[in-house]
């Protein structure tokens, strides 16, 4: 990381790429038991972003799905009778779980990484924000209401062109600067690029309840 960028708490787009591959390597070796982050190339194969998809971030519901045999012959609606047999087991009340997709995308105007995310239930239906809010850990809700930099907004995903939620980046460089300035030694070691994303995600990930495995933090 150039010392100038570092002093600003920002990151150049080239350094983002460097930081991202270091992050993937680090994550996938230290936490091989977690789902892997992957690098997704854009259509033009020039830029890309980090992606962690289909994660059950908060499986608070322990309840098992209720199961029953289908009631053959009983049909609501005017639908055609549909063949079912005794060998079929139907999930009548599927477990209510929420899946999250997390993307880390570089933002050129703020020169920092931005966390984009979305949530959906088990049959793929996107969740409304108030439902997501219920999933968020209590400290996250507090942070969201207290501080200016962690507010969640909905914006178009720059590569998928669909609305995703994101943590607005306008305060990121400020606290990243604090994070790096807090440790002069760290600032001088010169490995800071590789650590930028781990440090960043350790703060940002908390908002959506994603914890960085402790092993990754030990390198900081």
């Amino acid at each position: 990381m150039g010392t100038k960028e570092e002093a600003q708490g920002t990151l150049s787009s080239t350094d983002f790429g460097v930081a991202a591959s270091a992050f993937i390597l680090n994550w996938n070796t230290v936490c091989s038991s977690f789902p892997p982050w992957t690098w997704v190339l854009s259509h033009h194969q020039v830029e890309g972003y980090l992606s962690l998809e289909n994660v059950l971030l908060s499986s608070t519901q322990e309840e098992h799905s209720e199961l029953s045999f289908p009631e053959a012959g009983k049909h609501s609606h005017q639908e055609d009778p549909i063949d079912v047999d005794d060998a079929t087991l139907v999930h009548t009340n599927p477990c209510k779980v929420h899946y999250y997709d997390l993307h880390i995308i570089y933002c050129n105007s703020y020169r920092v990484p931005v966390l984009y995310f979305r949530a959906y239930d088990s049959d793929g239906e996107p969740l409304e924000f108030d439902e997501i809010e219920k999933d968020l850990p209590a400290y996250s809700k507090k942070a969201l209401s207290d501080s200016k930099w962690t507010f969640i907004t909905q914006e178009e995903h720059p590569y998928l062109n669909r609305p995703w939620y994101k943590l607005h980046p306008c305060g990121t460089s400020e606290w990243m600067k604090l994070l790096f300035h807090a440790d002069d030694a760290l600032a001088k070691t010169g490995v800071a690029i590789e650590l930028y994303l781990v440090a960043w995600l350790s703060v940002v990930g908390h908002v959506v309840g994603l914890r960085i495995p402790f092993e990754m933090m030990k390198q900081l």
Binding site: T88, L89, H91, R118, S122, D123, G124, P126, R162
Partner: peptide, 13 residues
């Protein structure tokens, strides 16, 4: 008899 759990579908947005 063997009772098979039905496949479930999910459709991404």
């Amino acid at each position: 008899i063997v009772v098979f759990a039905q496949f479930q579908s999910a459709v991404d947005e």
